[in-house]
Structure formats: C-alpha cells, structure tokens
Nucleic acid binder design. Structure first.
Length: 260
DNA sequence: AGCCAGGCTGACG
DNA sequence: CGTCAGCATGGC
C-alpha cells in the first residue's frame, strides 16, 4: 500500500495535468493505459517514485530553514517519473500560462486527438502520439485547443520526435548535456527543459526556475541574478536532489503556504 | 479593466 | 554575451 498525498501530487502540484478524481479514486491514462494511484505494478512503482527516501531530502537541505519548512508542510508530496513525451507536451503548453489553463489545454489536447478509454463508466482520453500531432496544421490546433502561439511549438516538436528525436536517450546523459540537447526543440527553453528533465527523465538535479522560483530564490535564499544563475546556485546550495526540493519550494510559494 | 501566468524566440547591442 | 518587445489566451 503506497502512502502519499494523491490530491497534492496528482492534482494540485502542477507537475502533471491530466489526472482526475473519479468516484473514489485518482485515475489517468498514462502511456496508453488506464492507471490509478493504487496500481502496484512495476510501471506504477517507478511512476510514483516508490522507494525514494523523502526524509533524506530534508537532511540534505538542513542548512536552509525555509526548505526544511516547506518539506515539513507538504508531507506526501512526491515528484513523479512521467513518460518524457507527456511531460514535454504538457510543459510546452505551460509557458507563460497559469496552472488552471494549462490543465484545460492538456486535457483538451487529449480529448481532441488522444485515444478514448472507458473506465467504470467514465470516458478518459490518453495523450496523442507524436505522429498524430505532427500531422496537424498549427492553425487548426490553435482553433481547436486555443493554445495560441504554442500550437506551432507542439506541431514542430511532434514532427521532430516522430522523425526520431532521441527523447529516451536523454535519460542517460548528464543534465547539462541533456538540457542542451532538448532545448534544440522549438519552444523548449531552459525552464521547460528543466521541467521535462525533472519530471520525465529522472534528473533530480534539474532545477526549473519560473516566476515563482525566481521570487523565492531572492527572498528565501538571497540569490539574485538571472534565472540561469539561480539554477546554478540552487544546485550548489541544495545538492544533487535540488530538483526534488524545488517542487516543495515552488508549491509552498505558489499557494502562499509560505510568505514570499 | 488590466496585470499576470511553471517563458520562448528572434532581433539588436 | 545580455536585454527586450511581442506573443495568444484566459484567470482573477
């Protein structure tokens, strides 16, 4: 029996956008299959990050009271290991956007172009394949999903992935190498890259800096400068699991749990 | 009503 | 190398 905060991790944390609470359980289509938070197969163990010592995280950043506080205030928050493709599309849509709308866009792209599934009388939709999105006219996508200028990023990226862009091999690379590689995709800058690496390839040392993290780095850690600089400082200060810590910090800041 | 959102691109110094 | 307008859309 897995113990973690499902509402927090799967719905509220903004690391994934296509889970739903139906009847009495959390359900999604992940990698082409119906998944629930109660699954106990090997895929689920990896996806839900079973086996990680989350208590150890606190120890690793014990020099930083606010980090410890954030971790203490959010017990049961986990960092998922998502399929890279799904994380990539979701975070392409996320840029310069708010969480509520990102969820709508991700669900929209699944409903419009993904396979349909039936689970206990509910209809669910999976992520569309790269080849499916690669065929779309960006203007049509823009009309059907209202993702604005991001439509071109989605289609361009889908074409490259369909034609063999090696997403899986990112897992074997050092963060900086993987980062450089994935930012070749149009619409993938430093921040989106770090989200894909943190949530999709298991790079726990990827440290996404968005507007919230930028603010919190200044006020909680007294780190000032460009987002790239903050990124490096975070790794230096918080260590090789700084990405996992980021998730606690981000949520604490964004929800106002801890005052910026 | 107007600023903001899990930013990026391309242009220009 | 750093800076910056422009970008689509909707939440609040």
């Amino acid at each position: 029996m897995r113990e973690f905060d499902e509402q927090l991790t799967l719905i509220d944390s903004a690391q994934v956008f296509h889970w739903q609470f139906l009847d009495d359980e959390y359900v999604s289509i992940v990698d082409g299959k119906v998944r629930t938070s109660r699954d106990e197969d090997d895929f689920a163990k990896k996806y839900f990050d079973d086996g990680r010592d989350y208590a150890l995280l606190k120890q690793q950043c014990c020099a930083f009271p606010t980090a410890v506080k954030a971790i203490d205030m959010l017990p049961g928050l986990r960092v998922l290991n998502q399929p890279i493709w799904e994380a990539l599309i979701a975070f392409l849509l996320s840029q310069n956007n708010n969480v509520k709308r990102i969820r709508g866009l991700v669900l929209g792209i699944c409903e419009k172009y993904g396979d349909r599934y039936t689970y206990k009388g509910h209809t669910l939709y999976g992520f569309p394949e790269p080849s499916t999105l690669a065929k779309l006219d960006p203007n049509v996508l823009k009309t059907q999903v209202t993702c604005g200028y991001r439509a071109e990023y989605i289609v361009e990226t889908s074409k490259l992935v369909k034609d063999g862009f090696p997403l899986e091999s990112l897992k074997e690379m050092e963060v900086e190498t993987a980062r450089k590689e994935i930012t070749r995709l149009k619409g993938v800058g430093p921040k989106v890259a770090d989200c894909v690496l943190l949530f999709g390839t298991g790079h726990t040392d990827a440290f996404p800096v968005d507007v919230w993290v930028s603010r919190l780095m200044e006020s909680w850690f007294d780190v000032h400068g460009s987002r790239e600089y903050m990124c490096g400082e975070a790794r230096r200060l918080l260590g090789p699991n700084c990405g996992l810590v980021q998730q606690y910090l981000f949520h604490a800041a964004r929800t106002g749990l801890i005052e910026i």
